[in-house]
Design a binder for these strands. Structure first.
Lengths: 244, 244
DNA sequence: AATTTATATTTACAGTGTAAATATACTATG
DNA sequence: CATAGTATATTTACACTGTAAATATAAATT
């Protein structure tokens, strides 16, 4: 037999391959992903997969893109849960909480994105940049809104080096150079959130600190304390907007 | 031939295997580590390695332990560069700077420790805990010294859950339960430092923020601002030791 | 009806980690 | 000194892996 009748074929084989790949990753980790094993479970031969993915790396890239989509959806949903003006702080906290929840709910997706799990795989940044920017866009969006509302404290933050036309401007949705340090704030917050969550997900926190949730909530609190001014029209003893 | 003359044998074959493994990791990444390739370059056959390492994983564990030793040395040296009483803040900054420098100098060692690079490898925590604790001990030591000098601000920090006899007490070198929140501070600082450095080393910072050094120095500054009180006998307008 | 294209299969190759059996150099013991 | 035991290697073999090449056939197109 060379090719089965269409009636016997599996519909959407491309999606099925990804499904089985995810199942395999979830069961035994991303490192043990095997085209042959996927084919075996799908009842086809291994080279047939090459009709849908030119490479094993192409499959991994497709999985990463899906993971980023799931992650980005989660981030944007969390952000949209506090849509009203004046809810910027709650919006920021919600995206932060959602970050950790998503990572704990889908540790393998998280590790596929932020770890380096698959043997010889090198991520094609050019292809991944759009989905990376979209998911990061939830955070940068919140920060930009805080900035617009005059509640962002970005003093002393080193702005990234970027000439006009740089992708950072398109990410921020603005060509205002003053937005660049706003963007640096997003990177700093991202790195803090990522730091504690990555340690927790990879199991490097548990040997030392058992209660990841408490640590994480403290970290979110101190992030808010550092980068957010108290609400407008609440001057302190020394002056306006001077909470440091 | 079954066994070459001792005169022709390579001395310290066990060490040589690790050397070639490191060279291989440095050249083409930890994921492409191959016993056969090591044996080929060493002029022996692959199974001969099993006389020195029971497993491929055993070899990886040995490499990780070496990497931790290098990392721990670097941390403790940085700490020892400001040994005098009263230099606690400089001591903390020095270990922070050293953390990033070591990671950038030996990215593959860093990734071997903090990433999950080798295919099916699962780290044997019980075996690695001592070297992990030693390298983390530099940071916890500095924090403990800040605490002893009355310059640590740990208010609001959730202490880890630990009954007497827990390894955290041995790590802190004290059975004082009050030291536990001190320990949480170390975890928080570690996670922040790790977050920004891991993004930079894995190349996930560059697409967005080019100048990692500036961001890192800012992060160290804000860490110091958050957790360190101003020096003694410098009361502010509202009272002593009330810098928040 | 003939041709092209899409989707498989079969076969094959080079690579991997590692288990088993085997052979020899070195070391210790009777 | 002879002999047994141990350490260190080789050879062989197995079950995997990703993937390239050639081939065959169903479905779509001309």
């Amino acid at each position: 037999m060379a090719r089965p009748l269409k009636a016997l074929q599996m519909p959407n084989l491309g999606e099925s391959i990804k499904d089985f790949a995810w199942r395999q990753i979830t069961e035994s980790g991303a490192s043990s992903l095997s085209l042959r094993k996927i084919a075996r479970e799908l009842g086809i031969t291994a080279p047939a997969i090459y009709n849908y993915f030119s490479d094993r790396d192409a499959l991994v890239t497709a999985l990463i893109i899906d993971a980023y989509a799931s992650f980005g959806d989660c981030q944007h949903e969390a952000k949209a849960s506090f849509p009203d003006p004046g809810q910027e702080v709650e919006r920021l906290r919600a995206t932060g909480i959602a970050y950790r929840q998503w990572a704990l709910q889908y540790p393998h997706r998280y590790l596929l994105i932020f770890g380096s799990p698959v043997p010889g795989y090198v991520p094609p940044m050019q292809e991944l940049l759009p989905v990376m920017m979209r998911s990061l866009g939830a955070l940068t969006g919140v920060i930009a809104e805080l900035h617009a509302g005059g509640r962002l404290d970005a003093h002393g933050i080193p702005p990234p080096v970027a000439e006009p036309g740089h992708r950072l401007f398109t990410l921020m949705g603005s060509a205002d150079p003053g937005m660049l340090s706003v963007y640096s704030v997003a990177m700093l917050i991202w790195s803090r959130v990522h730091g504690i969550v990555s340690l927790e997900v990879t199991g490097q926190l548990p040997p030392f600190a058992e209660d990841g949730e408490a640590l994480y909530r403290f970290e979110l609190d101190s992030i808010c304390r550092q980068f957010i001014r108290p609400s407008v029209a609440v001057p302190d003893a020394t002056g306006f907007f001077r909470n440091r």
